[in-house]
């Protein structure tokens, strides 16, 4: 069933991810991301915080945990209203394409416009994937989208950006593994105040290319 994982993590899957920068647009505006090194630092920071949270939620959703409860857990781990809205917007987009791609009764247990990692876990289960796969997809997507957003906004060399993303593979795998090694039911809560602040400032701007 590995091919389903490739489809799920493919940036071309039409789930709306290309309109979200994962905080990169505001990080660039704030001068925090300006070159490959600062981009790599930002992506790593994002991976081990919101990426780890997303991976844990996706794995738990894939494992069949109570979905409305997980959705509330995601709310509790996302202090920024702008980030909660962005996550639900992307969750809704993933449900739209996921229902068509991997029909399953599992979708019916999701709340309307669920958080993206929760929807991702359901998509993984519907596609016959494992919780480990769901966690890996969530961790990977937490950096792949922001990386391409930075490439577009700064007109960076796409080969460099691809290399930055590829070299994060060991860290992405480690985040996915960490979800599985935790005690049953324990979810990461390592949220990053910087991402919350960037998202809140970004949401007030009238001159943005990205939805978040």
């Amino acid at each position: 069933m590995t091919a389903s994982l490739l489809t799920l993590a493919d940036s071309r899957l039409p789930a709306g991810g290309h309109t979200h920068s994962g905080g990169v647009e505001q990080a660039i505006a704030a001068g925090l991301v300006r070159d490959p090194a600062s981009l790599a630092a930002f992506l790593l920071r994002r991976l081990v915080t919101s990426g780890a949270v997303a991976a844990g939620l996706a794995a738990a959703a894939c494992r069949g945990r109570n979905l409305p409860v997980l959705d509330a857990e995601a709310d509790a781990r996302t202090p920024s209203p702008a980030l909660r809205a962005a996550s639900r917007q992307q969750g809704r987009g993933l449900v739209r394409v996921g229902r068509r791609a991997w029909p399953s009764p599992l979708w019916d247990a999701l709340p309307a416009a669920p958080h993206h990692p929760v929807a991702l876990g359901v998509a993984a289960a519907a596609g016959g994937l494992t919780p480990r796969d769901a966690a890996a997809a969530a961790a990977y997507l937490s950096v792949s989208g922001p990386a391409t957003a930075a490439q577009r906004l700064l007109a960076m060399d796409p080969l460099t950006v691809a290399a930055v993303t590829a070299r994060l593979a060991p860290e992405i795998d480690a985040v996915a593994e960490d979800c599985l090694s935790r005690a049953d039911g324990e979810l990461s809560a390592d949220t990053d105040p910087l991402l919350d602040l960037l998202a809140e400032v970004h949401a007030t701007r009238g001159d943005r290319f990205f939805a978040s």
């Binding site: 071309r12 709306g16 309109t19 987009g93 577009r152 290319f209 990205f210």
Partner: peptide
């Protein structure tokens, strides 16, 4: 709709934001 620097993508390749 915000199109993530890619107005073309948003109307053809990934229409999610417009469908929303």
């Amino acid at each position: 709709v915000q199109t993530g620097c890619c107005p073309h993508t948003a109307i053809r390749d990934d229409i999610t934001a417009n469908l929303d």
